[in-house]
Amino acid sequence: MVRYIIRRLLGALAVLFIVSLVTFGLFMVVPVMTGASPAYLYAGKNPSPELIANIEHGLGLDKPIPEQFYMYMKGIVAGRTDLTDGTADGSRPCPAPCFGYSFRYQSPVWDIIKDRFPVTLSITVGAAIIWLSLGIGVGVLSALRRGGFADRASMVFILLFLSLPSYLFAILLLYVFVYGLKWLPPTQYVPLTESPVKWFQALILAWITIGFGSAALYARLTRANMLETMSEDYIRTAVAKGLPRKTVVRKHAMRAALTPILTIAGLDIAFLLGGAIFVEKVFSLPGLGLLFVEAIGKQDLPVIMGLTIVSSLFIVVANIIVDVLYSAVDPRVRLS
């Protein structure tokens, strides 16, 4: 088990290395090759050639590309002290993990990400609670009452939210609850530690948007898995043993039916942790998704790169966690 996890972690590092290499290639090398040095982005209008040269030197852009990449990788592990804004006393220290320095925000990239992450984490946790409890609850119930009223009602729910585009739903929520009924103040994110109520008010619509949309998907998946499991031979055996229906459903059917759903949930959550771009934009929540949008607008390459690597980190780690959990639940799965 420990050896398995170590091997998977090494594999994850390799994946992250490749991701870094590719993003580095895309964002740092291509502009140089096309002749538009990233230094222009930082230099204001009509810069003098010396200024550009200074900035390039300060960012290390005048070094050979492999060396630049080496410095970048090393910076993630050990931090960097070599970055400057091109002037003599313009040193920009960037402690580990250093994903570069953003001149747009005048801050190391990692600090910006750290600053924004709690917002995205709040969105993700709340949304996941809604979609897992609602999706699994509705799915199990409609499978057990197959063909009955509850099943039909949940089918309507599922169809509605699967076909309703989430941007429409989000804007609808915004207009009804914020501008129409005025039940919620116009959104302004406040950290949980500052005011739980305001935090909740700022996030609830985002949770509902993501939560209901995903819940529909999960309900459909849960229903299908539950129906399939309930027709398995081992469920018939459980009934034939004389077990109460409650035990048959909870202990025998749900455990088997929900295991694959939780693995999917793990990956979905990891994906969401990388930033819920659209929802953050609509509800003005300054999380990683909004940061990404801003960074693209400002052509802030170090931030874009940092975000790309961090979101792939989430996905790679979630993959490992999900596989280990799966093997803990299903004894047929051998980790090797």
Partner: peptide
């Protein structure tokens, strides 16, 4: 007997 016993 394989499918009639719970795998978990």
């Amino acid at each position: 007997p394989l499918s009639s016993l719970h795998p978990f």
